[in-house]
């Protein structure tokens, strides 16, 4: 019986110790989403809704942590064992000369792209880029120009995702940033714009 109790204690300590080191912030998803929203609204010239100013406390993401709803006692223990600094929300830097110029470049192109996004000739792809949807209603002569616009827009978007990752000294975040933007482009798209859902099907907002 004593051995069993000792084993339980050892197990609990080992469990708590191992649980303590499993909380890491890999990607500041909430901060990235907020930053993406700011940039996307700026590019699409969407007005900020009242009371929705950026700055809300983002949440850290974790991997391997135990859901507190399942084991509230463990969560309580973890709350006290994990140093506050390691659970703080990391910031995401979205200001750099290159990022600012890319934003300006995309913003200036938005007026040219908007009619085609509204007509459904192009749409927001699920991969964070602009995709050709249906050019049938676009005059033949315009299609090449539209294709050029889309390629230039996607080059800017590719550079934007890379630059944000680079500005934060985390080139490995580029994919996460692109995926975050992919969601936000669709979220912030004005009514009538076309976008690809998670299954790759085209839908109109």
């Amino acid at each position: 019986m004593r051995a069993l109790r000792r084993m339980s204690v050892v197990f609990l300590v080992a469990f708590l110790a191992s649980a303590c080191v499993t909380i890491h912030i890999y990607f500041p998803a909430a901060a990235a989403e907020e930053a993406a929203r700011t940039i996307v609204r700026d590019v699409l010239e969407v007005q900020d809704p009242p009371g929705n100013e950026p700055g809300a406390a983002p949440e850290p993401t974790s991997r391997g942590g135990t859901p507190s709803s399942i084991l509230p006692a463990v969560a309580w223990a973890l709350d006290r064992l994990v140093a506050p600094a390691s659970a703080q929300t990391p910031d995401l830097r979205v200001e750099s000369p290159a990022i600012n110029r890319l934003r300006a470049s995309m913003r200036s192109r938005n007026a040219e792209l908007a009619p085609y996004l509204r007509s459904g000739a192009i749409g927001f792809g699920r991969d964070g880029y602009v995709a050709i949807r249906d050019l049938s209603d676009v005059p033949l002569r315009e299609r090449s120009q539209l294709q050029r616009l889309v390629n230039e827009e996607n080059a800017d978007r590719r550079a934007l995702y890379r630059e944000i990752a680079r500005a934060n000294d985390r080139p490995d975040w580029e994919t996460n940033i692109r995926e975050t933007f992919a969601r936000v482009w669709v979220d912030e798209a004005p009514s009538g714009y076309w976008y690809q859902d998670a299954g790759g099907n085209w839908r109109q907002k």
Partner: peptide, 11 residues
């Protein structure tokens, strides 16, 4: 002629 997405078309 045109394909469904208008990526190959002639007038």
């Amino acid at each position: 002629f045109s394909d469904p997405a208008g990526l190959r078309a002639a007038e």
